[in-house]
Design a protein around this nucleic acid. Sequence first.
RNA 1: CGGGUUGUGGCUCAGUUUGGUAGAGCACCGUGUUCGGGACGCGGGGGUCGCAGGUUCAAAUCCUGUCAACCCGACCA
Length: 570
Amino acid sequence: MRATQLYAPTLRESPAEAELISHKLMFRAGFIRKAAGGIYSYLPLGWRTIKKIMQIIREEMDAKGGQEIMMPIVQPAELWKESGRWSVYGDEMMRLKDRHGREFALGPTHEEMITSLIRDEVRSYKQLPLLLYQMQNKYRDEIRPRFGLMRSREFIMKDLYSFDKDVDGMNNSYEKMYDAYSRIFTRCGLKFRAVEADNGAIGGGHSHEFTVLAPSGESSIAYCEKCDYAASDEKAELKLICADAEELKPLEKVSTPNCHTIEAVKNYLNVPIEKTIKAVAFMDDEERLIVAFVRGDHEVNEIKVMNAVEGTNHLYMADEKLIAAANSCAGFMSPIGIGNAIIIVDQTVMEMYNAVAGANEVDAHFINVTPRRDFDAKKIIVKDIRMVQEGDPCPHCGEPLKMTRGIEVGQVFTLGKKYSETLNAKFLDEDGLEKFFEMGCYGIGVGRTMAAAIEQNNDKDGIIWNKAIAPFEVVVVPVNAKDDKQLNLAEEIYNELKTAGVDVLLDDRKERAGVKFKDCDLIGYPLRVTISPKTLDSGNVEIKIRRSGEFMNFARGECISKILELLKTL
RNA sequence: CGGGUUGUGGCUCAGUUUGGUAGAGCACCGUGUUCGGGACGCGGGGGUCGCAGGUUCAAAUCCUGUCAACCCGACCA
């Protein structure tokens, strides 16, 4: 490919709306352009990288026995009504009607579609397992699309669905995909973690999110450096922390004027924060008051609270009236003497001695609270309900956990019979009995993977691509393309590299050297070969490695083999 | 959905307060000089100011409506 033929509109400035580095760089480097909020066109350079990522995915899917198919984007509403998700999906689903008024959705995912495809065709266990995948646009009408390709309304996703005859088979498919995903993100040159995830509504199955480590990521994860443990902050299990035993002192109510916050109480009574108990009051859809208690320096994990309370799907902050109705008041809540409420106490709180807690009345707290003595065990639920913090012990090996932010680029999970049952998809097993398929689904955000790679690999000059997903592996730059000697040598090297199977670009534009160098750095080709009067005189060519900024000179005769060698390391 | 901000050439933005008929830099076209880190000169093309309506002799500027984009999202007592 020649730069004079390439549509790669680079910009000096980035649009005002771009926030993330990856978004700015993709825009400036001429990878994407926006058509509407959360909807983008991919220009040639962007599409080259997308295609390379897709090819890596394809190879790994095929290696696990996956077969590529293509399903429709436009899906009939009746299928979604059958699974019950027509109403559940809500405003996030893009809907449309045809000229006859029939309803359709733009597919946000394809469980329904594939299950209906399979249920009509696959009759025997002998046809299983079956792993089918596609790479295609998905539509989700996000409340707030942002961050360029990170959270868009139309995006390219690889989705694979597995069909197995039993749970063992399903778990085996899961293992295969887990392995394939690890290989894919490794090949893309990404630093990532497979994170244990909450798969909530699906229940029972495994789920992992593949998260690329980046400070700008939207999800927060806890991980252990010693063992393999990694989990989303909401999912991370926590070990019980037992305070050192102390001699029990009698419970006592003290005045704490205007001490609405733990900080104020701590300072007023001059006690360490680890000896305070704080309360967070929620209510659910049925207006039940739910009060969670954690140690003063801990945070409540709403997901865990929700999971601990029977029949609750949403939590809201409790309103004052509800708190008053339970004979308490905000800022001074306590499990001791509170009225009608669901009380959830973090397990660590139960192991505290002589602590400070609210007194359910304005400007008063209890001191010397020892939960096991002072709480009414019959009325409380004791669970792990706190949010993980940096330094908490790893649930597997006990080492202090680290916290980091990340970008979720893929997820794998087992579905079990969830869709095969609701959509009545059955086959005959060895015994001639009808059974529901055991399913799994596995997704990768392709555009997001590209964005994550940039987020993780950039500097002040632009993108730094890993060779595997760079739009071109090598760029050959004659500093002055109007000089035939330079251009001719550049053409020779370009052709030799091409023959050697390198994905190479010849920057034959009649631009000044500075302009071309800036573009090279911005676009981020891993390797630049420079031809100039200087190198012509010396009989060398100059190589610049984008990532390290390192320059090297190779003799003309051996430069091709040297470049090929160097490429292996990028 | 609620709150905030913004919409002026491809990009970044000025002009709006105090109405008088649109401007800069970058990009683009031509030309000459320059030529290893986003050169310079000269000459050009391109916008009716998001859209619709209103006020006015006159609207980018004031009013109403509408659309779009961006940012923030209760609260941890």
